[in-house]
Write a protein that binds this DNA or RNA. Structure first.
Lengths: 226, 226
DNA sequence: TTAATTTGTAACAAAATTGTAACATTTAAA
DNA sequence: TTTAAATGTTACAATTTTGTTACAAATTAA
């Protein structure tokens, strides 16, 4: 079992318990103690599943969930809601707002584990393969779209292929020759400097007011994502 | 709401209650009082979802479920298991044997309804009926009619097939080659530019004074719905 | 049959993308 | 510090891609 799970829950003892056990089961886990932090961290962490507490100090779980669904890169993120023993009305609201399942506290870890498995089994066959993600960037190969921080970015065809190429091995540094071979159609002759110009164009589109530079120049070697 | 639901449950009062309410909500419902009959009926009825009682006079729900999963045509049939208030161990076994969700008796109809919606939403975005819908567009494959925003749109045969094709995977970008293969009869030779002209015709018909463009051009890739 | 509709293609218009040159800036070495 | 190499930036003409229209041939309906 593997995958990344994010927890938003304000009770540290629950986080500790769950996180420890999930990690023992091979998951990579991260967490936040409140909704606002959680929403930010979520984007960095890019989880495969979210455990969400119903009652949080700032935002309610429902609000968070609706928020998440608006963000294109999280449209299909499976969510399991954790509720205190409460009324059924609440549960239903939860399910209708895009929650995939819910669990009433107190719950056993075995029960949680079973739900997680079930939800991951359902959601992963589809969405896993064709979305490339890195940091807060998401590239959808099916729909040919790119999002950063949930917001769509328009790219020209070459910029798209370039970014797609980098995303298959983010962090890896590629030489201009390697980039040419992989991104340009065979047997075209373009100057190696042309790449620099396209990198510049990609940078310009991708660095939407975000401070962090996404493309790194490695002098005398090439470029990589960072 | 529409779709076909099959119930295997040995308590007639529950069947009656659930069946009546589901039908009131637009579902087509059929049922069996035991497992062996159920398995047979299931194949005839071809449901979109199965409600399965945990304890049955002959086969257990789990056995039925495993049985179903062996049958290729039911491999993806969503199953909601109905259990009497019982031990947690049982629930877990259920989830691991391919059940999509479960519900503990006694349950309210509202709760059941919410689960059904959630499960169908996940598994059935397309296949629920012969009507393809996207945004405010509806295509009736049986009657060969198309409506936007409730108003009928007249399309030529090729435009209809084109739209039908796009609707099976809205948002997905198709290349002109893919479109040719799927929309035109085999082994006809038409120029790829011909597609552009048909796209133009489809656009013209579909964009009834509505402001929003429905067909997206993805330069150097193809077209998609949006 | 005739009339109407549908279809594919060509021709031209409009728009977007592309590669390169020229100049600016940064970096590293001498 | 000075110099050379590498990379960043900008502008622009050429090319590619798509939009649009018109029309003759083919198909269907009346």
């Amino acid at each position: 079992m593997n995958g990344k799970i994010f927890i938003i829950e304000d009770e540290p003892s629950i986080i500790q318990l769950v996180q420890h056990n999930l990690e023992k089961n091979g998951f990579l886990v991260s967490s936040s103690l409140n909704g606002n932090d959680g929403l930010k961290e979520l984007k960095k962490f890019q989880p495969d599943l979210l455990l969400l507490d119903w009652m949080l100090p700032d935002l309610s779980g429902i609000e968070i969930c609706k928020n998440i669904r608006k963000d294109n890169s999280f449209k299909n993120l499976p969510v399991i809601m954790l509720t205190a023993k409460g009324e059924e009305e609440d549960k239903i609201k939860g399910l209708d707002s895009g929650v995939d399942d819910y669990l009433t506290k107190p719950f056993s870890f075995n029960e949680l584990m079973a739900r997680i498995k079930a939800v991951l089994r359902r959601s992963n066959p589809n969405t896993v393969s064709d979305n490339l993600k890195f940091d807060d960037l998401m590239l959808d190969r099916i729909e040919k779209r790119v999002f950063r921080d949930g917001q769509e970015i328009k790219l020209g065809p070459t910029e798209f292929r370039l970014l797609e190429f980098f995303l298959t091995n983010p962090k890896r540094v590629y030489s201009r020759d390697q980039i040419l071979e992989s991104v340009w159609p065979n047997n075209v002759n373009v100057e190696s400097r042309t790449i620099d110009v396209h990198i510049r164009r990609l940078r310009q589109s991708v660095n939407l007011k975000n401070k962090k530079e996404l493309i790194r120049t490695v002098r005398s070697s090439g470029y990589s994502l960072i």
